[in-house]
Amino acid sequence: MTALSDTLAKARADGRAALIGYLPVGYPSVEVSIEAMRAMVAGGADVVEVGIPYSDPVMDGPTIQAAAEQAVRNGVGMADALRAVSAVADAGAAAVVMSYWNPIDRYGVERFAADLAAAGGSGAITPDLIPDEAAPWLAASDQHRLDRIFLVAPSSTDARITATATASRGFVYAASTMGVTGTRTSVSGAAQALVGRVRALMPDVAVCVGLGVSNGDQAAEVAAFADGVIVGSAFVRRLLDAPDAAGVAAVEALAADLAAGVRRR
């Protein structure tokens, strides 16, 4: 069992959802991004998604695009991401890589899996890789005992939800709304309906919800029906507003607010 699966099981046993936070490695710099990930863990994040910045992030809204563009310009590579993974694992949280497929493809799928496992990572979330195209990754993640998190969306058919959840390990990522990443003022009703559909079809699979959550109240709302609450843009926003120690502190404060949210009864 990976640290991720372990963490999700423990949260479930505690009767709460897990808090999963995302930050791209390399914004504003590799060092500060790693500090911010540690701060996120200190604030109460159970799982950190270590984002690999990509030049063409078609699933991301303006906030993550802005940070990623800067990180790409900084020349961030897989070695930096693996260093962040180790730092997160050392800080006591589960680390998963979040990456569009080409950076992993370019690095080499087998080499990525081996190096990620060696760095103490639990697996990877691949927003533009559907299981249909994932044969090499399925094999490599099996061999290195890594989790692989695929996405489902409100538009997914029942057949695709079943197939995607079957191919997934760790959890299934439920994209709560149709659209790109970014904070939203209210949590979409589609999220709960989608989680319900996944649960009905695949009762044993953990389902975590992402896209739009930005504060403790929204986290509490999602935590009521999901196994995990995923927060990305709101963390990135803190660093965009203050790309320094103040931003890192703001990341920790946000994590604390969200961590309280997922524990609210």
Partner: peptide, 12 residues
């Protein structure tokens, strides 16, 4: 070729 797309687009 193939389809390297977000799941949200697969149905369409």
């Amino acid at each position: 070729g193939g389809r390297f797309v977000p799941e949200a687009l697969v149905a369409a």
